[in-house]
Design a protein around this nucleic acid. Structure first.
Lengths: 188, 188
DNA sequence: TTAAACCATACTAACTGAATGTAGTTTAAA
DNA sequence: TTTAAACTACATTCAGTTAGTATGGTTTAA
């Protein structure tokens, strides 16, 4: 049930780009992303190229170039990113919606394992296809603001709290669903 | 988010042992399991040994030996089996309950990815730790009986339906929870 | 014109997954 | 008591994936 390192890095980078956009930063360099997230730079370059080919991000070449999201963050689901890097969400092929594959069992219709795994795949997809980069970015920024932590990618060092809130979105709409529970403190 | 072949085989074999027990069959040989599920026999032998070492099954050696569940099927959760074979359910180490591992990100408390993945891990564990072999077996047998399919591991060839129902359990209690939805027909 | 940045390919070491092979030991039954 | 079916143990293999490195570009703004 693992997410690969590559998938993790891709998500981190995209979340960072989403945060940068939210904070008013137009471009972020690979070197900066790699340093912030402790990702080997050449490896991250590969990943960024892939994300660009697939239309998630855009690049500006040359000196002082960098990357930005190609679409608004709320139009990029987490599920799409994970599928691109790590393949189908389903634990076994015979319950995948996007990449169905017949399994070895003789009678799929009566396979108890399949029924169970369909449940699991729906639970995973229900989360990853519902939430977008925007949700993750919003929840992250909220927590950071609440704890008075300086925001990343701010052009100027983090300004006064009241000023920060009125950046791009005049008002934060409440998050519904599962992620919202995580706004409160939680232990491991 | 994949379940390994090994994990799949282990689950199939255990579900089969659960079905055999339910149908009154005391022991099942590896050769029979391998044939039914199309699993390479030597590979399955390895898996059975592991399951035995971990106390999920017992063996009877010698001619006409075989394997049986070491505990009642409702005392073996699917999650425990998956964890044994494939490791933690969590997509990334920093949200695992059973095998927590610090991740590379500088600030775990404000990591949006972590919050999301915690959600995913809870969704997966919520299913796999709730359901037991008994649940899967019951749901499978129900479907087979409903469709009048001969049950596997029956000592005699499948008897008339009315006779089959009154085997071990005098009456089937209704299944609650998510799996119950799957009792009705579903498409891929 | 140059340095910072992105772009493109090729390569590789280590690991894991999925078996296969060989050689036993045990035990019920003929 | 022999024997064959069944489990046990451990070594080996082989392909594919993961997680990177390495090398050498091309672009473009200062």
């Amino acid at each position: 049930m693992k997410l690969s390192k590559k998938g993790e890095y891709a998500l981190r980078a995209l979340i960072d780009l989403g945060m940068a956009a939210e904070v008013g930063r137009p471009l972020v360099q690979v070197s900066e992303l790699a340093a912030k997230e402790l990702i080997p730079i050449k490896f991250l370059e590969q990943i960024m190229q892939l994300l660009k080919e697939e239309g998630f991000i855009e690049s500006q070449r040359g000196k002082f170039g960098g990357y930005r999201l190609a679409r608004p963050a709320n139009k990029i689901t987490i599920g799409a990113i994970v599928r691109l890097i790590d393949g189908p969400l389903a634990p076994i092929g015979c319950v995948s919606h996007t990449a169905y594959e017949k399994c070895s069992c003789p009678d799929e219709t009566h396979c108890g394992l399949r029924m169970l795994m369909l449940d699991v795949r729906n639970a995973i997809a229900g989360i990853l296809d519902r939430y977008t980069l925007a949700d993750v970015v919003e929840v992250t920024l909220r927590k950071m603001r609440r704890d008075n932590v300086p925001l990343p990618f701010s052009v100027a060092p983090a300004p006064r709290r009241s000023a920060t809130r009125s950046s791009h979105r005049p008002d934060l709409k409440p998050v519904e669903g599962l992620l919202s529970n995580l706004l409160s403190d939680y232990s491991i």
